[in-house]
Amino acid sequence: MFEVLVFVYENYWRGDACPQPEQLGRKLSAQGFDAEEIRDALRWLDGLSLATQGVQLARHADEATATVTLHGIGDAVLPQSPDSMRVYSMAEQDHLGAECLGFIRFLESSGVLPAGMREIVIERAMATPGDPLALDELKIILLMVHWSTGIEPDALVLDELCDDTTDRLPH
C-alpha cells in the first residue's frame, strides 16, 4: 500500500490535483500495482480525504510556527493548550511503536507538527496494517497528510521526511 501512496504523492502535486478514485485506480493498475494494494490505498486515501476535509492553516505573526484549525460539523475544535500532554492509548503505543512515537514527539517539540495535524497523522497511522508501524511508513503518512491539506512542509522537515538515513554517518 505504501508504494502506491508514494506513487500518488510523486505524481500529483496536491491532493486536489489527484483524479477521482475510479480513474486513479485505473492509472495505478496500468502502472502495474497489485489490485489489493490499490484497493487498500484508495480506501486509505478516502479516509485521509475525510480526515483533512475541514483543515485550515493559520500562521502566527512570527511566521515560525503554524496552527492547524480543524472544523467539524459547524463547530471548531478547541486548540491544544501549550501545557497539555498527549496520552497515547495502549493500541496506539503498540501500533506506532517507540520509534514512531519518538519521531512524532520530535516534530511536535520542533514546532512543525501542530496538535490538530498530529491527530490526523495518528488516526491515519492507526488505519494501516502492521505492528509496529515502520518509521519510513510514518514519514510517508506525514507527507500524505501535508499533501492532502495543501500545507507545504518546511524545507527542513521535508528533507527529514524524504532523506534516506541508511547511509548517514552519526557524529
Rank of each mutant, 00 (worst) to 15 (best):
L24A: 01
H60I: 01
A61R: 14
L50S: 09
L28D: 00
V6H: 05
E10P: 00
E63I: 05
D34E: 13
I38M: 06
E37T: 03
D62C: 12
S29M: 03
A66G: 11
Q53L: 14
E37I: 03
L42V: 03
G47H: 09
L42M: 00
A17D: 15
R26S: 02
T52Q: 00
I38L: 04
R43D: 08
E10H: 09
P19N: 00
Q56C: 10
S49N: 13
T52M: 04
Q20E: 08
R39K: 12
A61H: 10
D34N: 08
G54P: 01
Y9G: 12
S29F: 04
L28I: 00
T52D: 02
T65N: 12
S49Q: 11
L5P: 03
A61N: 09
A41F: 05
R59D: 04
L28R: 00
G25E: 06
Q31K: 15
Q23G: 02
L24K: 01
N11V: 02
D40E: 15
H60Q: 07
A58D: 11
G47T: 12
G47P: 08
A58N: 13
G15E: 15
E22F: 08
L5H: 03
E36G: 05
G54W: 02
H60G: 02
R59V: 04
Q20W: 02
Q53T: 11
L24H: 02
G54E: 03
A17N: 08
A30N: 12
S29E: 10
R39F: 00
E36S: 11
L57K: 12
R26V: 05
A51D: 09
A66Y: 02
T52K: 06
G25L: 06
W44S: 11
E22I: 13
